[in-house]
Each structure stands twice: as C-alpha cells, then as structure tokens.
C-alpha cells in the first residue's frame, strides 16, 4: 500500500470493499472455471448462436435509443419541473425495477397484446402487432431498462449547475436551445452512464422478453433466452453462451469507453 497521505485507505472500508468485489467476481470465476474452452470457437461459429447474439446486440441498442429518446425528457421533467404528484411519478418510474420482469411482460401483454388496451387498437387501426416480434423484444427490454437511464440522467440534471442555463438565457437562447446546446452537453456524462447501464440491462433481459415477445430463433430469441433453453439440456452450452454474451458486451463497452475518453 502506498504511504502517500492522500491514498491511505481505512481498513474498515477496504475489507468490505474487497469482499464486495469478490462476491461480484466469484460467480464469473465459476463460469470461467467450468467453461469448455475447446468447444468455444465451434459454438461461436454456430449460426444459431450468431443469430441470437446479433439479435441481442441489435435489440439492446434499439431499446437504449428508445430509452434515451423518451427517458431524457422524462428525467428533465422530474428534475426541473415542479408539478403536483412529482414524487408519485418518480416512484412510478422505478416500478419496472421492482416488478418481476415476467410480471412486467404480462403487463406489457395486457397493454400492447393482441387483446390489450392499446394493442387491439394498434392491430385494428394500423395492423401492428407487437408480441412475438423483434419490435416486441425492443419494447420489453426498454420497459425494464428505462429506469436505469431516467435515474442516472435525473441525478446528473440535479447535480448540474442551473446557472449555466440562466447564462444561456441572457445570451438569447430559448428554453429548447438552452436544453440542446447547454443542458444536454453538461449532463452528457450522466446520459452516457445511464445509456450504458440501460444497454447492459437490456442485453441481459430475460423475463419480460420471453413473456411479451416469446422465444423464436432469429426473431425474438436473444442470448439470455438461448442460454436459458440451453440450460435445460446442456449446462456446458449454457456456460459457453453466457461467456460469449459477457465477452462481447464487455468488449463493446470497453471500446466505447476508449472512444469517449479519446474525444474529451
């Protein structure tokens, strides 16, 4: 340990921190220890695996885009506008965090399903059905992942110095321009962090997806669904699929991080 004064860490913090890290990392070690490394390249080459992986990455990204488009304005509303029932709305935003994802999936069916509150109207008016479609996967993932984005962005907005917005106003910027030119750039790190959390959550989404969008290879079978089904017959296959998902997502996040850090 370093002797420099600023870097001394109290043991009372170091110990639980180490235990916490161990607790998070050990299951990963378990996966790595039991992984059939030799069959890994072969599994990766399987068209079914590649299809599920591609679908996972595409839907998680689409869900993140959807969450950013809807979640950032929502976070702004919660952080900046005093309105009656704001506390209630803030609590409602976290509902998908508390709700078991399978229940979330059922709830989505009750709204967007073929006989759902909106689904029946969508079907009758536009011929749009969402369950069992890739769009349905995106919807299910966005539902469970959005709170992560909203909470992160709201926190960033609350932490941002509002006087910059006032300065923008005195320079002639209207509220929308202030939002896009000043507020958003200021909270960009918060939005990025929220988007990463959101993407990661969407990528691992299982319960709401299988309930709302079902499971069909190439259309709605994402990696977590493939992992779960592999678990039914072949534990090793499930481990390999999990590791593939893990490796790819970590690689992508690391790559994005480098790119972000490179631009600032």
């Amino acid at each position: 340990m370093s002797r420099r004064p600023g870097q001394r860490v109290p043991l009372a913090l170091l110990l639980p921190a180490g235990l916490g890290l161990l607790f998070l990392v050990l299951p990963l070690v378990g996966l790595l220890a039991r992984a059939p490394w030799t069959s890994l390249p072969r599994r990766l080459a399987e068209p079914g695996v590649r299809t599920a992986l591609r679908l996972s990455l595409e839907t998680a990204t689409a869900a993140t885009v959807l969450c950013v488009l809807l979640g950032v304005p929502l976070a702004w509303l919660l952080a900046r506008v005093e309105f009656p029932g704001r506390r209630l709305v803030r609590a409602l935003v976290t509902v998908p965090l508390v709700l078991p994802p399978v229940v979330g999936g059922v709830a989505l069916l009750l709204v967007f399903g073929r006989r759902g509150l909106l689904g029946s109207w969508l079907d009758a008016t536009f011929g749009i059905t969402l369950p069992f479609t890739t769009a349905g996967v995106v919807l299910a993932e966005a539902f469970v992942a959005m709170p992560f984005l909203v909470i992160a962005v709201e926190g960033a907005l609350r932490g941002a110095d509002r006087r910059y917005e006032e300065a923008a106003a005195t320079l002639g910027a209207g509220r929308w321009t202030t939002f896009t030119r000043v507020t958003l750039p200021l909270v960009a790190p918060g939005v990025a962090a929220g988007a990463v959390l959101c993407w990661a959550r969407a990528l691992g989404e299982f319960g709401a997806t299988i309930t709302f969008a079902g499971n069909y290879p190439g259309r709605t079978q994402t990696m977590p669904l493939a992992v779960y089904l592999a678990l039914e017959t072949d534990l090793q296959a499930a481990i390999v699929l999990s590791l593939i998902l893990l490796t790819v997502s970590v690689a992508i996040l690391a790559g994005l991080r480098d790119r972000w850090l490179g631009t600032t």
Partner: peptide, 21 residues
C-alpha cells in the same frame, strides 16, 4: 419579457463560461 428576449448582457460572478465550448 423573458431573459432571452431582453437586450441585456450579463457578466456573472464566476463567469459561467460553458465548459463544453
């Protein structure tokens, strides 16, 4: 008249220069 439509310029105490520009 909202601030953005006033012919008023302000130099703030700690300047509030936009850090991203």
């Amino acid at each position: 008249v909202p601030p953005e439509r006033r012919p008023v310029g302000v130099v703030f105490q700690d300047y509030l220069l936009f850090p991203h520009l």
